[in-house]
Nucleic acid binder design. Structure first.
Length: 782
DNA sequence: GCCTTGAAGTTACCG
DNA sequence: ACCGGTAACTTCAAGGCG
């Protein structure tokens, strides 16, 4: 029979008869599981001078032949564009792939092994051309199944034309733990509450009976298997909720069987909790697509996305949970607060899911993993799919030392306010340079190779050479991505904006663009399978040449270039001149240039990568300054933003000065709420690994001592308190600080004043002017 | 021993 | 576990001074 289904999750059963498991939803909305087969294999290339036939004999007569390698064949593939005759060795159990590779690599005559380090199902998806979150059709024979229909594939799945995703059953959840000491130890502290909300907005909460959470966890497990969600979403659920539930259930001897096949979830090495047959998405990971949200709390993300909960907003400090839980009159607060959070989780999930689905489709990674994987791996997964399509062997990952190279060019701006400024930039500059000059590892010509000048493109400054023909790997991939995006955008023009299909396509084209722009970063990543320093270095060099030539052309057209960074120029907006300039740039450089934005007024402090302006639509645009930096306290950012706004809108410096003074007064008087004084910084490693005792590290150490849990990647919020010691020694986690301990002088001198002066110093304001009132008051006191 | 200075370490931004 | 360029902060150790 024929089956049409949408691929939700992918798994594998290894062993002697390995199977790929495709979990999905069919066109009737039924949940299905498709078993497909695939022969595990790897490739072996011969050393130079060794014939592939003799290598075949060597492999056949080796002891490996006795092991369960089922077939060895001579096949034609490509290795970075060069045709190679190599051996394809098939075997039974994919788990042994690395083991066979190690053995085969030791045989005389073997140059290298390929594709032995790629996960079985990943290879299946790439080779067969199955794409997660897409519809496929295939012939199957039914194998029964109760909760979901089970099929055995008779043909491999083929992508079908259908694009609309099926209705996905969502389940948002969160837990609350009773931990009087704050230690959150699953061997001791019970899960007093598990709150859930389904995609239809139905909230169900599973409460512990007093401190006995056995029943709550059991009910939750059976609820999950009854409701049978396709997507499970939490916030911080990889690190906390699911791990805690798994460990707690283990401790209690409760089966935590929330997987679709009735098994228990598995925690991967990178801290992702995988729920078989469903997609588990941790919104904390997904929120990485919202860089505007600096401090990624549930509330902040919800506010940014304008997500609201039905349940009222109740604040329960987590340290108060045990007391509330034990006080009958206060217990409902925990239930309400938790309900509120879980509703936010669902609301955020609904907003982010389309993007996550698109990223899964474009990268080819399963929905469950795509947000957990780094950008490099998403690009690489897509590249592996393309490699196979053109018979390219996937290079092995090798460990390399970082080799720095020169990047983009930045022009130093002259300080001041400029009026009527146009910003133009190149459309996807790096990808288009890579296409234009055919920059790729497989087109690179090493210095000792002899070629005629017109056969190659030579990069400026660095002199790396790349063959003009045939089209390289990166060029082929990038051209395809650009073509796909263009096609999507063409289709969008024919649909009414605001329709669901339009949104779907918009998400897709954005994901494709993101992927396209990430390829340059990928090619210079030493961990990349397709890394070649010269590729990244040459691309950047051509980029510098491009922007420098652009600046020259602008000047030739009588346009002042106020600023330039990598692929953009800021010029005075004289429409006819800008038009002519942009035309000449495009014709001489054959790269598309497009207007980005227009400032009515723009301010430069003189520093690179920092400017602020009034756009032609009246909005204030701040770039690079403290205003947009998450590691400055809100009070400093607020003051700076207001100062910028006053200076740009009314150009009334006195007004700005008076405003700053008033804030300084308020800080001095202790009238600023503590939250606005908190400095949030990321802990990039564990506190012990640091070489210096910076404030956030001292604060982090103190938080850990007080029972807080912090790991690499966590944000620490701290306050500087009064005292005469070093700043670091006065940095305390904000939760441990009382308002009267705040060192208001520090906030005035090291936060508010620098932020304000960054702007005001360019308008003749002296630091003392901001402190005048304070100075006067001190003088009076004296 | 105290103060100045600049390098080193660190974070988060821009494109 | 994506690139380099950049600003800005705090710490820390070296150097100057006496």
């Amino acid at each position: 029979m024929n089956l049409s289904f949408w691929v939700l999750d992918v798994g594998q059963k290894t062993g002697k008869n390995p199977r790929v498991l495709l979990w999905g939803i069919n066109d009737k909305g039924e949940r299905v599981l498709v078993f497909d087969t695939f022969t595990p294999h790897l490739y072996i290339t011969p050393k130079p001078g060794v014939s592939v036939e003799s290598l075949l004999e060597a492999v056949k007569s080796s002891s490996i032949e006795a092991s369960p390698i089922t077939a060895v064949n001579v096949v034609e593939r490509r290795l970075l564009g060069k045709p190679v005759k190599c051996l394809m060795a098939s075997f039974e159990d994919p788990d042994y792939s690395p083991h066979y590779a190690r053995k085969l690599e030791r045989l005389p005559g073997v140059e290298g092994c390929f594709e032995a380090d790629i996960r079985f199902y990943t290879k299946y998806l790439n080779y067969i051309g199955v794409t997660p979150c897409c519809w496929h059709t295939l012939k199957v024979s039914p194998e029964g199944g109760d909760r979901y229909k089970i099929y055995v594939a008779e043909t491999h799945p083929k992508p079908s034309g259908e694009e609309r995703p099926p209705h996905l059953k969502l389940l948002g959840f969160k837990i609350d733990v009773y931990s009087p000491t704050g230690s959150m130890n699953p061997e001791i502290d019970p899960v007093i509450l598990i709150s859930t909300v389904t995609g239809d907005g139905l909230v169900r909460q599973f409460e512990a009976e007093g401190h006995d959470d056995r029943g709550a966890i059991k009910s939750f497990v059976s609820f999950v298997s009854d409701y049978d969600p396709d997507v499970i979403v939490g916030f911080y659920s990889n690190f906390f909720d699911l791990q805690y539930l798994i460990n707690r259930a283990k401790h209690l001897g409760v089966k935590f069987t929330i997987n679709r096949d009735g098994s228990e979830p598995h925690v991967s090495v990178y801290g992702h909790v995988s729920v078989v047959g469903r997609a588990h998405i941790d919104l904390y990971d997904a929120a990485s697509i919202l860089p505007e949200v600096k401090l990624k709390t549930l509330r902040n993300i919800a506010d940014y996305l304008k997500v609201e909960a039905e349940a009222p907003r109740v604040n329960v400090d987590f340290t108060q949970v045990p007391r509330y839980w034990d006080t009958p009159s206060l217990k409902s607060r925990i239930l309400e607060a938790s309900r509120h959070d879980v509703e936010l989780i669902l609301g955020i999930a609904e907003k982010l899911l389309p993007t996550v689905v698109s990223m899964s489709q474009v990268s080819g990674m399963p929905l469950d993993q795509v947000m957990r994987a780094g950008v490099g791996f998403r690009v690489e997964n897509m590249l592996m799919r393309e490699a196979h399509a053109s018979g390219e062997l996937v290079p092995a990952r090798v460990e390399r030392a970082r080799q720095p190279y020169v990047g983009g060019y930045v022009l130093e701006p002259k300080p001041g306010i400029y009026r009527n400024v146009a910003v133009l930039d190149f459309a996807s500059m790096y990808p288009n340079i890579m296409i234009k000059f055919n920059v790729s590892p497989d087109t690179y010509v090493s210095p000792d190779e002899k070629v005629t000048d017109d056969e190659v493109h030579v990069a400026p400054e660095v002199n790396h050479r790349f063959r003009k023909e045939p089209p390289g790997f990166y060029k082929r991939v990038l051209e395809k991505l650009i073509k796909v995006r263009r096609e999507i955008r063409e289709r969008m023009k024919k649909i009414s904006p605001g329709s669901p299909d339009y949104h779907l396509l918009d998400e897709r084209q954005r994901a494709v663009k993101t992927m396209t722009n990430a390829v340059y970063g990928y090619c210079g990543w030493t961990g990349a399978k397709w890394y070649l320093r010269q590729v990244a270095e040459a691309t950047a060099a051509w980029g510098r040449e491009t922007i420098k030539k652009t600046i020259e052309i602008a000047e030739k057209h009588g346009l002042k270039v106020l600023y330039a960074d990598t692929d953009s120029v800021f010029i005075n907006n004289v429409p006819e001149k800008v038009e002519a300039f942009s035309r000449e740039v495009e014709s001489t450089l054959s790269l598309e240039m497009k207007p980005d934005k227009t400032y009515v007024k723009v301010f430069f402090s003189g520093a690179k990568k920092r400017y602020a302006g009034l756009l032609d639509d009246g909005t204030l645009d701040v770039v690079g300054f403290e205003v947009v930096r998450g590691d400055w306290p809100e009070i400093a950012r607020e003051v700076q933003e207001k100062v910028i706004e006053i200076v740009l809108r009314s150009e009334n410096v006195e007004e700005a000065v008076n405003y700053v003074r008033s804030i300084i007064e308020a800080v001095a008087a202790g009238q600023i709420p503590l939250e606005k004084l908190v400095v949030w910084e990321t802990l990039t490693k564990s506190p012990g690994e640091y070489k210096v005792k910076a404030p956030h590290i001292v604060a982090a150490t103190r938080l850990i001592k007080a029972g807080g849990r912090l790991e690499a990647g966590s944000k620490i919020g701290y306050i500087i308190t009064k005292g005469s010691e070093k700043i670091s020694d006065r940095a305390y986690p904000y939760s441990l600080v009382e308002p009267e301990q705040v060192d208001t002088d520090y906030y005035i001198t090291n936060q508010v004043i620098p932020a304000a002066m960054r702007v005001l110093e360019h308008f003749g304001v002296k630091e003392e002017a901001l402190l005048k009132k304070k100075a006067a008051r001190q003088a009076k006191l004296l």
